[in-house]
Structures are given as structure tokens and as C-alpha cells.
Design a protein around this nucleic acid. Structure first.
Lengths: 150, 150
DNA sequence: ATTTGGGGTTCCCTGAAGGAACTCATGCTG
DNA sequence: CAGCATGAGTTCCTTCAGGGAACCCCAAAT
């Protein structure tokens, strides 16, 4: 389908999609985050085609989101989150919150997060980096930034 | 390619991807958010195929993320965010922050957000809904929730 | 009566996803 | 040492979704 590349657009959403926007990539990241770090584990857990898994892992490594690390004298490898990748997981946590609120149904959320700092079950709350007050979609004006197109 | 449906997985990330995980959907949401609400506007701005745009808009309306609204006596329509959709935009704001930090390059971020509450340029910061302290990927333990699989 | 313009459909072509089989290097077992 | 097992991919074929351009329909406006 010669899928359109988004990376050249002057938009951080489009650029981010170029890194993890392909099908399966967010789920791969999720699995690596919770400790499923090896090829066959990922393949079995996700039910993804091995071909596509190979492609996605390569791409995520290339983008600096994952790191491919040998764990044996034999040619065996594990995938780990880099700092860049760990910060991406925050985005997944926000996705989880939305999915929990709008799609979970009566059974409730599939997973819970316990926050280390307070020890409580909690979800992630978007707040203003400047004043700390809630920062939702209609709490902001969108202005052109320095990297805006001409 | 008979793309795998993620919606049946017991995972809020997978379920959310079923709503906005298809190519273009997040960009459509972004455009609608900043006021590009009509078919031809969206098509021209994104450079998306009209066919795919039709499919995406239908799907987003079906999922309750967008609302299709007539704006004229003639059959003319605008797409608007529902509450469900507006909350999804928060996820886009987090994507933006990540893209700004890791992909923007020397030109800097393409857009800036001014927070209504404090009037300052700021970005969105993930915090614990319980204690208000920062809540990043490695600040939490992931536990099975009530909706977890057996 | 014809043009214009928004909002889509229809069509064909290419390329990405699914799926299963195959490969390759190493280590273990008998 | 032969044979099997294992992790980590590759190869190959088929099917379906995305790109792109042309086409269509309806309701003003000229």
C-alpha cells in the first residue's frame, strides 16, 4: 500500500507515529516493558507473525527505542527499553487510562498501577508542567512554535 | 493483509488501538481538534486518500469519538470531538511532548501550548492521580486488575 | 440551464500483514 | 560423535488494506 511516511511532517504527533505508529509496535513496547523481552516470548504472547515481529523490532532498535542485547554465549538476544523508549511508555500509560475509562466495560480495568511514591493504586493524570494544575485538551491554546513550517 | 483486530485482547492499550490505531486516525483527530472539521479540509491538509478518509471518519463516528453534524441546509457536514474524543486528545498531547523531546531537532517544537489556568507556555506532565507526584514508567508496579483474564 | 463545490464512491494497482515452512548456529543427550 | 532441541530469525505465498485518480450526486448560485 506504499504507506505514507509521516516523519517528514512538521508535527510531533506525525513524527511520533513514524516511530511507533505501525500496527503491533505499541503492544511490543508494552510487552517489553512488563518483562517479555525475547523473540519467541513476544511472538507467542502477541500472536504476531514472526516476519512482522522481526521488522518491528528492527525498526524500534533503529529508532533508539529498544536495545538489542545478547544474554548468552550462544546467539541469543533480549530487547530492552532505552531511556527514549521508557519515556514512550508514559504515552502507553495514558492510553491505558483512556481505555480503562471508555472501553473496559463492567469487568473493570485489566491491570492496575501501584505508584511507588505513595503506594496507592492510581492512574496517570495530565498536569501542566508549569503550574501543576490539570491540563486537558480544552485547557490550552495551540500556538505556532519555533519549529513551525513557513 | 486481514489485519488482526486488537479489540478483543484483555488490554486497554490494545482496545484503544482498535479505536485510533489505524494509520491517519490520530492525525485526523489532531486536525479536528484544532478546527479543521470538514471533509475537503481534512483531505487537503493531510494528503490522505479520500477513500481512506471516509473509512476513518466513519469508524471514529461509530466509536463515539467524533460526531457528524450538519452545518447547512444543504447536505454539508462537520466533524466534532465528543467528550470521549476530547479525552483522547490528551493522549495526543503526551505524544507531542515525546515527539518534541526526542524528534524535534534544533528547530524546536512545531507548536506550543499555552495553559489557560496559568497563561504560560507549558507541556503536559504525567502525575499520579492519587498523590500528585510525577508518575513515569518506572514509578509504578503493574498488577492484575478486576478485568484481567483468567 | 449550467456551473460550482462539498462530500463522498468506485476502480485498479501496489505493497504490507498473515501464516506456515524452512534455515542456521549452538548446546545438550545418549 | 550423531541426533535432537532451542532461540532467533528468513523465505515464500496469499490476501487484503492503502494510494491515487476519476467519477457521482445534490443543492445553491449565476
Amino acid at each position: 500500500m506504499q504507506r505514507t511516511r509521516f516523519g517528514d511532517m512538521t508535527c510531533s504527533i506525525a513524527r511520533t507515529l513514524d516511530v511507533i505508529g505501525e500496527p503491533w509496535s505499541p503492544l511490543i513496547l508494552r510487552d517489553v516493558w512488563v518483562g517479555m523481552t525475547r523473540f519467541d516470548q513476544l511472538q507467542a504472547d502477541l500472536g504476531i507473525s514472526r516476519k512482522v515481529l522481526t521488522e518491528r523490532l528492527h525498526h524500534l532498535v533503529e529508532q533508539g527505542v529498544l536495545e538489542r542485547r545478547p544474554y548468552d554465549a550462544r546467539p541469543r538476544f533480549e530487547y530492552h527499553l532505552t531511556d527514549k523508549g521508557t519515556e514512550l511508555v508514559e504515552m502507553l500509560m495514558v492510553m491505558v487510562r483512556w481505555g480503562d475509562r471508555w472501553l473496559a466495560g463492567p469487568a473493570g480495568p485489566p491491570v492496575l498501577y501501584r505508584h511507588h511514591a505513595c503506594g496507592e493504586i492510581a492512574s496517570v493524570d495530565p498536569r501542566c508542567s508549569h503550574c501543576g494544575e490539570p491540563m486537558h485538551a480544552d485547557d490550552v491554546d495551540v500556538l505556532p512554535g519555533p519549529g513551525a513550517a513557513a
